[in-house]
Design a protein around this nucleic acid. Structure first.
Lengths: 68, 68
DNA sequence: ACATCAAGTCTAATATTTTATACACCACTT
DNA sequence: AAGTGGTGTATAAAATATTAGACTTGATGT
């Protein structure tokens, strides 16, 4: 029953314009390492970074990140 | 244009069962200080804590936290 | 074969969030 | 007047997120 956070960032990147981690990092204003770590589920981001990513992709936060 | 995060936790607490900060903290599994700090916009929470709060109130994350 | 680019890993430093503790303030009750 | 409960504040410590740098690997192109 231990819930965890998953995300669709990789999918969104490729659906977008095949954008690279670096491009997304720049667009969102974080480092590439942050994108790598989140994609690989090394840790969950801050709410602020989560919102920035959702805003960039222009989708609701819950379609980027799932808590289950 | 500097966006920031606001929240409706206080409103939700009172609409719910007039629950106290301590009750919410216990229900969500964080300290009361965390609830105080978030309510007072001292910092924005982790995505995980944000999800836990939304889950507890049984509302979408975006109706607890707004990024604007 | 060499160069380049995207992605993954590692480590160490910095920044931010979370906790614990203690105390002050206000409203309410006895 | 004294006690209680809910909230706000302050501080320092612990935990977690973020950054920067260097290096590796695989794929692709010249």
């Amino acid at each position: 029953m231990t819930k965890s956070i998953s995300n669709q960032i990789r999918r969104l990147r490729f659906n977008r314009n095949e954008m690279t981690q670096q491009m997304l990092a720049d667009a969102v204003g974080v480092s590439r390492q942050t994108i790598v770590a989140i994609e690989k589920d090394k840790y969950s981001p801050s709410l602020e970074v989560a919102f920035k990513i959702a805003l960039y992709f222009d989708v609701p936060l819950e379609s980027v990140f799932q808590y289950q």
